[in-house]
Nucleic acid binder design. Structure first.
Lengths: 156, 156
DNA sequence: CAAAAATGTTTTGAGCTTGAAATACTTTTG
DNA sequence: CAAAAGTATTTCAAGCTCAAAACATTTTTG
């Protein structure tokens, strides 16, 4: 028991960081909720589906399920269901990997490419609108800042 | 069809904002995943439960279900299940609102207060650690920045 | 005051998420 | 080469999430 204000509830520094975190979380959740809503109403899709398609767009040659879950940083079992549903809609295909009967490669179909292109363009416009408060300079500087944090957290 | 690089895939500005968003999302998700993991292993709890308890701690007099879902910005039905489980564990109670048989007030029990105090202290230490890259000045400035964004999104 | 509108909550159905267990196949090793 | 270890994926159970529908109760209004 000291007479310092930091004695209960952490230091002044930890308080400032906590405030930052709460604001950051609120912002991120707000933007995310808006994206989710627009994907739902305008494309009948979801953020996880969009994320999977974005990853597959980047890796034209296709990705193994495990690689996909690695890139997206979500659990293995999670990806199974999302890919199942994308496959039902004809947006992705599972291809057997020759020489390893355990693995399958997931790839965007032509329909998947086309659909993703439409969604990605809209997605970029939405972000431009939602983050309109940030100038190019601010955005660039801030992005660099976050990179540090990310690299700190995990061994990325 | 112009010869400008912006013709396909948005403007330079929208690209910078998109990059910012992707970094921001990655950081927030990284911190969130770490918090979730620690709440799970060290307290056998979850982030949504922590959020509900934090809201109830702030409103000592208790909150109606609808107020709770308003404060937390999650759907009504969502809160029902979380409160159900917190009640099973004896951390919150539902109290009938006199004069309105539709509504119930949710309040932390003494056990709930004590448990939340322990978790909140740990939570603050974790954030201090995870956001150690940000000085107090940076954190404060950045928090203010995010406030703008948040106020822009919704009419908060 | 009875019908209609509004308010407060829970239920429902579909999808996302995790960690852990189960399955299936491949590679290593004794 | 068979057992053991390792790798790739799916299944499972529990919980979170939403929007929409269902219920219950209160308030408003014709």
């Amino acid at each position: 028991m000291s007479t310092h204000p930091e004695a209960v509830g952490g230091t002044a520094t930890s308080k400032a960081r906590l405030r930052l975190w709460l604001r950051m979380l609120k912002s991120a959740r707000g933007v995310e909720a808006e994206l989710r809503e627009r994907l739902r109403t305008e494309f009948g899709s979801t953020l996880p589906r969009f994320d999977v398609m974005a990853a597959l767009e980047r890796f034209e040659a296709g990705l193994k399920m495990s690689a996909l879950s690695g890139v997206l940083r979500v659990s293995n079992g999670n990806v199974t269901g999302i890919v199942d549903r994308l496959a039902e809609d004809g947006l992705v295909v599972r291809v057997q990997v020759p020489g390893d009967r355990r693995a399958t490669l997931v790839r965007l179909t032509r329909k998947g490419h086309e659909e993703f292109a439409r969604q990605a363009a809209a997605h970029e416009r939405w972000i431009d609108e939602l983050l309109a408060d940030f100038s190019v300079e601010d955005a660039t500087a801030l992005a660099a800042r976050f990179d540090e944090v990310t690299h700190r957290e995990d061994g990325a």
